[in-house]
Write a protein that binds this DNA or RNA. Structure first.
Lengths: 193, 193
DNA sequence: ATTATCTATAGATCTATAGATAATGC
DNA sequence: ATTATCTATAGATCTATAGATAATGC
């Protein structure tokens, strides 16, 4: 019951992918190692061949989740030629995104949990956050590089804040109002630049 | 070892207050009933005289936390006569607020956890959220009631999103950049109205 | 021979309950 | 007598490890 070295590297990647999805859906403390391994189709015991501890996995998944946001946002930016930013905002603040936790924005799914986690998690996420804002800034209109980075940060804060708020209620009307209000605010912020 | 009915009602309030602080600091899954009771100066067993379950307490604390945000924001609005909104924004996005989880904004401390919690939590938070946006709208400048409510929602999303982002990193410079970027963005949004 | 897997389990932690105790309030 | 407290513990869950098993790779 041993697998090849290629499979090992492959399994490790899949484990991070599966764990990231599960953390986004249930929260970091909302799912245990045993259930994660079951979801990945592996036994509990083999987990500790891949990671020293759950916290070690969490650090890697948090970095991976932020990198994932960067990939999704920049690919949404480059998907359309006309009004790419506005279309990205509409997609981000859609009910479809709101209702899809596992594959959605990791910042919105896990954001406030970061503050309660260890230094290791913050250290792992930091370079990915820096890279996220730099990459976003490239795709935004605006004068200076500095201004565009500020705009990226402010936009990301509004988007994730809006999505998080929309997920806090079971009132469909309120949730929709939140999405619409943030959408129009972010769009007019972009237009003002 | 029995206390008066007045003390019972008093203890219940204190328990909610202590639990709300602890949840904001450690996250909802980050602290157990035993430690909560120890923090409140009561024994574990007496908890279940006050609440059916931890989830029941969580629902009440989430509602309480949102009500608390409303109280803090509106009192900050009314604290100063000149530029009250800008001063509130500066306070909210200060390093002091960022570094004080237990007594800070409950939306920023717990926001993304709501999505992983039960219907009961959402139902408890909903009326408080509605009231929060209504109260904020009263204090904001703007034309129509509807516009002011939209502005309140968008502002709250930006503020909490910004604070959450600033708490995701251990890089002091990045964290400060986030606070400043969101500050200036929110302020120019307010000015545009 | 090495190494990654599996099952089984230790040990810690967490929610909730049982039963005894003692102060309140009719 | 009622009721809220306390200590002790049941039962579930979760992280991590031990030891046996079997496939890989020198």
């Amino acid at each position: 019951m041993r697998i090849s070295r290629e499979k090992v590297a492959e399994n490790r990647e899949r484990l991070i992918q599966v764990a990231t999805d599960q953390f986004r859906e249930h929260g970091i403390d909302g799912i245990g190692v045993a259930d994660l391994m079951k979801e990945a189709g592996m036994s509990l015991g083999s987990f500790y061949g891949y990671f020293d501890s759950k916290e070690h996995l969490v650090s890697e998944c948090c970095a991976h989740a932020v990198a994932d946001v960067k990939e999704k946002i920049t690919s949404a930016f480059s998907r359309s030629l006309t009004n790419p930013v506005e279309k990205t905002v509409d997609e981000y603040l859609s009910t479809a995104h709101r209702d899809e936790l596992a594959k959605g924005c990791g910042l919105a799914a896990l954001g406030s949990e970061f503050a309660h986690k260890t230094e290791a998690v913050h250290a792992a996420a930091t370079p990915e956050l820096i890279s996220l804002f730099d990459e976003m800034a490239r795709s935004l209109p605006g004068s200076s590089r500095k201004k565009k980075r500020e705009q990226s940060i402010a936009m990301m804060a509004s988007l994730m804040g809006g999505l998080i708020l929309s997920r806090m209620t079971d009132d469909a009307k309120l949730s929709q109002d939140i999405l619409e209000a943030v959408k129009s605010s972010v769009k007019s912020s972009v237009r003002a630049c």
